[in-house]
Design a protein around this nucleic acid. Structure first.
Lengths: 207, 207
DNA sequence: ACATCCCTTGACCAAACGGTCAAGAAATTT
DNA sequence: AAATTTCTTGACCGTTTGGTCAAGGGATGT
């Protein structure tokens, strides 16, 4: 996109800005975040921020697009030629790890989509739509051949998203309900393993 | 709380304000919402808004507390003396109906919790904590007596929250991925029915 | 008809915010 | 070391925002 090669300073500061922006945007939302907060968090002055990015909106957009690839990657990795249950369980685990290790990214996307995805509509309607179409075709194949339970494949994908992202997005609630000293992710891992095993393993009566 | 009896005009305008506030806050978040937007949406002038509520924060707080009871009600309704699977499935269905019929309320809570629940921490740590403790004891009992699968009861509750609220909170994503002309909730209902049936029904090998 | 209380609003304010700009400090190139 | 480009910032600006206030309009009780 940006053909011009970056100087070391540019690379360093851009990264610092995006890092600070992630921290601020993910806890305050787009409107709640201020350039001053981001600037302070990045260790730069506000005008300096705007030397590297044209506007607040530009920072936010850069952040979203930078993160999107990482976010969709686990689904892309699902291998049509692998063992169905293993592949799906692997996807669930990667998604849960993402929720554990990158909760701010998860919350950033969540807030954006909850508020109508004004900046992601396009990507969702094209890139994500196609990715899900492709992968749900794979799932449908597996179901057709009786290797996993017959289900609506898209809702199956939704369930993976919902169940894993919940632990990142609703972290404070999860921890408050669970008790502060318990690690949610250990329990989540065991629970989701059982859940998806029981859901996906075909029962003897299914053909 | 407010002992003074309200006049008809007060009741009407307070309701109009809270209704408008729900619409605006749920799509823009707390910081993104403006008093002017709420005022226009309610058909009142901005100073008039502040005649009924002390501040923007007060409107938001009133809205949250007013909605909280409704939101926790379905879980309260789960009957310890009923049939376990029926009771849990009933809870799932009521939650899904809530997501379908009151998506704005769902998104309001979601945004609040994602951003660290600064105004709900207290309620979550006390009221919700105790409610979940009570109901997960019931679930644990059912598991103990072998009537449903042995699971972590709290994570089971999380899974119900996650799977149902997903359809309200991520509505635009769900519709974009599913295709605009498909009703998400019909598919969700069938999918969740299968999911929780398979998850909860004890296998023959369990004791 | 009067007095009292409830309701409504135009005009206004201070603070916060996103963004600009000119001018100087650092790097980098020549 | 001079020239040039890149980087940095204090001061500033227009707008928006939450909130105030005085003054007037409406309803209600007597």
């Amino acid at each position: 996109m940006q053909a011009k090669q970056q100087t070391r300073i540019q690379a360093k500061n851009r990264e610092a800005i995006l890092g600070a922006a992630l921290a601020v945007f993910s806890t305050a939302g787009f409107s709640g975040a201020t350039l001053d907060q981001i600037a302070e968090n990045a260790g730069l002055s506000k005008p300096n921020l705007l030397y590297y990015f044209a506007s607040k909106e530009a920072i936010y957009a850069a952040l979203l697009t930078q993160l999107l690839a990482t976010w969709l990657d686990p689904l892309r990795t699902m291998n049509p030629l692998g063992d169905p249950v293993t592949e799906i369980m692997g996807y669930v685990e990667r998604k849960l790890e993402l929720a554990r290790d990158y909760p701010r990214e998860s919350r950033l996307f969540a807030t954006e989509i909850i508020q109508g995805a004004p900046r992601l509509r396009e990507v969702i309607a094209t890139e994500l739509y196609e990715l899900v179409a492709e992968k749900s075709a794979v799932l449908a194949d597996w179901m057709e051949s009786g290797r996993i339970t017959r289900l609506d494949p898209v809702h199956l994908i939704f369930s993976i998203w919902a169940l894993t992202q919940h632990y990142a997005d609703f972290d404070v609630q999860v921890r408050a309900v669970l008790g502060e000293h318990i690690d949610p992710f250990a329990g989540a891992h065991g629970f989701l393993k059982i859940l998806f095993t029981r859901l996906l393993t075909p029962s003897l009566t299914d053909e």
